[in-house]
């Protein structure tokens, strides 16, 4: 049970789920799969199909936009509680970046198909996700001014 609670908290702290109610996150948490990654590995490469999103339980992930997936030119370094690969969950486009494992990491992944099924059965989940995306857009707009 406490593992489930930890996952709910982790999801709640991830920007994309921050506005989703905890009772709805229960079902999302149950669909998460654990993955272990080690330094030097790549979680996904640029232009890979976007089939799932990730939340970092522990460790560090570097994000590179370079077309060459082997190049480590990080535009962001993500730590625990942060998520990545979430945009592909909605736009069906391939990965726009490569994710490098900078430190041994524990990831929780959520399959796109599972999230979509959840959204159909729990429509208020999508309202929360939209709220979070909208807030991020608003913040980006403010920063760009």
């Amino acid at each position: 049970m406490s593992n489930l609670f930890e996952r709910i908290l982790l999801l709640k702290q991830a920007p994309i789920f921050s506005k989703v109610a905890t009772e709805d996150l229960r079902v999302v948490a149950q669909e998460l799969e654990e993955e272990a990654c080690f330094v030097g590995e790549r979680v996904f490469d640029i232009n890979d199909p976007s089939d799932r999103m990730y939340i970092i339980e522990y460790g560090k992930i570097g994000i590179s936009l370079d077309n060459n997936p082997g190049k480590r030119k990080f535009i962001a370094e993500l730590c625990a509680k942060e998520c990545f690969g979430e945009m592909g969950m909605f736009d069906d486009k391939p990965r726009s970046a490569t994710a490098f494992v900078m430190e041994d990491s524990g990831l929780l992944s959520l399959e796109k198909s599972k999230l979509r099924a959840l959204i159909i059965n729990y429509p208020e989940l999508s309202l929360g996700i939209m709220g979070s995306i909208s807030s991020r857009l608003r913040e980006t707009n403010l920063r760009s001014k």
Partner: peptide, 18 residues
């Protein structure tokens, strides 16, 4: 320190708004 307590706090915070 416990996940359950943190979750309870989060739920209660949500409830305030709701």
């Amino acid at each position: 320190s416990g996940a359950a307590m943190q979750l309870l706090r989060t739920i209660l915070t949500e409830r305030i708004q709701q």
